[in-house]
Simulated assay, not measured.
Amino acid sequence: MTTATAIVAGHGLALRRSLHLSKPSCATFSARALPLPPAANCCRTVVAAATPSSRTCRCRSVSSESSTAAASDTTDEEEEEEEMDPLAEVCYLDPEADAEGIREWELDFCSRPILDARGKKVWELVVCDATLSLQFTRFFPNTSINSVTLRDALASVATSLGVPLPDRARFFRSQMQTIISRACNELGVKAVPSRRCVSLLLWLEERYETVYSRHPGFQSGTKPLLTLDNPFPTSLPENLFGDKWAFVQLPFSAVREEVESLERRYAFGAGLDLDLLGFELDENTLIPGVAVESSRAKPLAAWMNGLEICSMEVDTGRANLILSAGVSTRYVYAGYQKSAATTQEAEAWEAAKKACGGLHFLAIQENLNSDGCVGFWLLLDLPPPPV
């Protein structure tokens, strides 16, 4: 049994108060949790805040690497200007990457804060994979925004880079679901609405600074045309309820171990490329998470696996735990009896998550005292992209 499993299972000091899952009414948010177990029957610890310097370096794309190289090359101004050209489009495949092994893409098709010669907003297609081994961008006039244009552009990604079309393509804008789904379906690609497009979201943030803001048509202060949805939480489907849940913590080293062994040990779950995301945390920094106990843990993990879970948060005002999935789905995952003590614990959990750069996790177990997990999801809070 690994250290990570032991702590999630509650054998270490990381296990916090164990609460029975409730089914709060979505309309009133009145938590109907069972009473908290007596203090003598639960392990009480305080969620330790992580070192604030959680993520000092984010994803490295071709544009950022080119900018760095150009800045250091003072002997060839023409080459520097070419490298920094905000009008240039990206078509890149890491020569060391296994092209056949890139089976999932992340894509965005939306307007940018840039005006063309007609004074109209420019649109852009941005495509990458989770490791940024594949990167592709192309600008479009606003008169050619349809599923046919997108379908042909996606097909050109494969032909230009010599890679097969992916099995799945994730996207995070719900407003573009019809166009993206239609284009992908015609190519035999499954379109997956999901905010687990972490590499894409960070790359867009970087491109705002290194490309869009330097474009001659850039419009400062322009708000995104298609903002991300943040709907009112709805009731959790009956098949997604567990029996109990607990706030837990894992050392950063143990989280790495869980992610590295995810495919080998668990049939269900999802990780993140912590090296690519540039997390610089001490190995002993405690990462906050939620552990769920269920007598039907495997079916529960299987259902959860199809949700594209992206984050969890605590609504301390209504004493609810909120689960976000897909691109615009939010569930009232659980409730607890509100008191000064439980509010303090929930706030400490949220503070620990913020100190870790938004990193947290969800673990599903057959028993909170068992030796392993049935499913493990590494999650990350990210602000919406600036475009």
Rank of each mutant, 00 (worst) to 15 (best):
F109V: 00
A48I: 13
A71F: 01
T137Y: 03
Y208M: 12
V47Q: 08
V148F: 04
D273L: 07
L236D: 01
E293T: 06
I114L: 13
T343P: 03
F241E: 10
T143E: 14
S295T: 03
A33S: 10
T234F: 08
R168K: 08
F376C: 00
G326Y: 11
A363N: 11
H11L: 02
H11E: 05
A352P: 04
S295H: 03
A355I: 09
H360R: 10
L115T: 10
A302Q: 01
F232Y: 15
G119H: 06
L262S: 02
S328M: 04
C373A: 14
R265E: 15
L274G: 02
H215L: 01
R58W: 11
R112V: 15
V211A: 02
A246V: 01
V62M: 00
C184P: 00
P166I: 02
L281D: 10
E258G: 07
K338N: 09
V314Q: 08
Y336L: 06
T68A: 02
Y212P: 05
A297D: 09
F232R: 14
T149L: 06
W349Q: 06
M84S: 03
R196W: 07
A6P: 04
G278Y: 09
P38G: 02
P251I: 12
F232H: 15
P113L: 07
Q219A: 10
V314D: 02
Q135C: 01
E106N: 12
G269M: 00
V374C: 05
A363F: 04
P24G: 04
S370I: 11
E106T: 10
